[in-house]
Design a protein around this nucleic acid. Structure first.
Lengths: 232, 232
DNA sequence: CGTCCCCTTGAGAGAGCTCAATAGGAGTGG
DNA sequence: CCACTCCTATTGAGCTCTCTCAAGGGGACG
């Protein structure tokens, strides 16, 4: 098997705006007929360089023109989770629009060319009081939330997080002697919880059992009480 | 333990627009000062009813006002995967905006009240030739893509899908005797593929090994060839 | 040409899945 | 109001599969 060691980059991988996801002809230069294009070229990046890191302010979504940008974040446990390998034509960073701040890493894998859509949070809020701006901000929040849903490692922690989330949104606080608790009636079955979290029905049952044994919750069918120790 | 059999619904769970994600005061009635609110009330739904099914046309995102809507889809293998339990205040259906058609189920769990943002694809395209409309459509595509990324069951199928995706975007076709193949040079390591797919590095290696044994691919380090049998 | 990182392969153990059976709860109809 | 029935929740046992730990080779880059 004699493959060539290195292949010439395909033409579409080089600067080419016909595949721009926003239909902005910004590369290699904008068409004056389009008026002021709200796009700026980013300097070329070398392998390993970061386009942004957690905490960096959001300055606009970025369009990858060539190369590969790895989007990843670190879990509280310290492991790294890769969310996306962004290739030519991909738009990245939208999930940070609503918060105005990045919470992940964007690192060039090899040489990368890209351009950035100019974005000023204040100007954007002023320009888009309408429905589209609200929908866009909401979509950004949903993208950020979707990224949080990763392959869960531990069923018990996963189920506990799920119960916390449901309890926070549907439950109500209640006094039980001297202790407080969040009580909630789950609207879904164990089977559907498993289908949501990616576990078998029995695994969800056993996880709930364990959480009871640990004194974090009390469960009686769909009636769930989160004790104070489980409030994070 | 004597919990009441059924609890009165919390006030915030009933029709209340102060928590509307789009800041539309549409419930129980719109404020005339806001002008025409582009929102319509949906009839109350009973448990088990579907708000939409795969193939239904997109008629606008929906805001859940009370109850729980389960969003799920069926995998090619026939199993059901739950994507979201939408509760009061959640906006659902945005991922179908760009395609104009739903590809999932939205089913009421218990009684559900919700309202829908009026949306006409043609009118929307005409009204939003600008950047915001493009960004919104792109965000919708990204949401749809994010939903595809579920907990993978089988490492081999998962790695094959990954290689197909990368090959389709970065690779190029090549003749090898009488056979055709897609050749690609991966920009990332096995470890990062594992971090992306949710597997250990060694599991990715073994999956690639199996795919070679099955005659679907040829791999030599990061140089990958997808043979015709692997083209789906 | 050397070094470092990446890829590969092996062996053991832990964990969730599957199959199976029983009890429990909720809703329905008499 | 009660009994019936179906769906849901629970628990056990065995198995398969991936993860972990470990070590050997190979390619890429300086």
């Amino acid at each position: 098997m004699d493959m060539p060691r290195r292949l010439p980059a395909p033409a579409r991988d080089s600067a080419d705006c016909r595949r721009c996801p926003l239909e902005l002809r910004c590369w290699p230069e904008a068409d004056p007929a389009d008026g002021p294009v709200p796009v700026v070229r980013e300097p070329a990046m070398r392998s390993g360089q970061f386009l942004w890191r957690p905490g960096d302010p959001f300055t606009g979504p970025v369009i990858v023109h060539s190369g590969c940008v790895m989007i990843f974040r670190t879990t509280p446990a310290g492991t790294e989770r890769v969310l996306q390998f962004a290739l030519a034509g991909d738009l990245i960073g939208l999930e940070a629009l609503s918060r105005g701040r990045h919470d992940q890493y964007a690192q060039a894998q090899g040489e990368v060319l890209c351009c950035r859509v100019r974005w000023s949070p204040a100007a954007a809020a002023a320009e888009t009081p309408g429905l589209y701006g609200r929908l866009l901000r909401r979509a950004s929040q949903m993208l950020a939330a979707a990224q949080q849903r990763a392959r869960p490692e531990d069923p018990i922690a996963s189920v506990l997080n799920f119960l916390r989330d449901i309890s926070r949104r549907l439950g109500h606080e209640e006094a039980d002697g001297g202790r407080r608790r969040h009580q909630v009636r789950l609207p879904m079955s164990r089977l559907d919880i498993g289908r949501y979290l990616g576990f078998a029905e029995e695994t969800v049952c056993r996880a709930i059992r364990r959480l009871q044994d640990q004194g974090l919750i009390e469960a009686r069918g769909r009636q769930i009480s989160l004790l104070e120790a489980a409030w994070r």
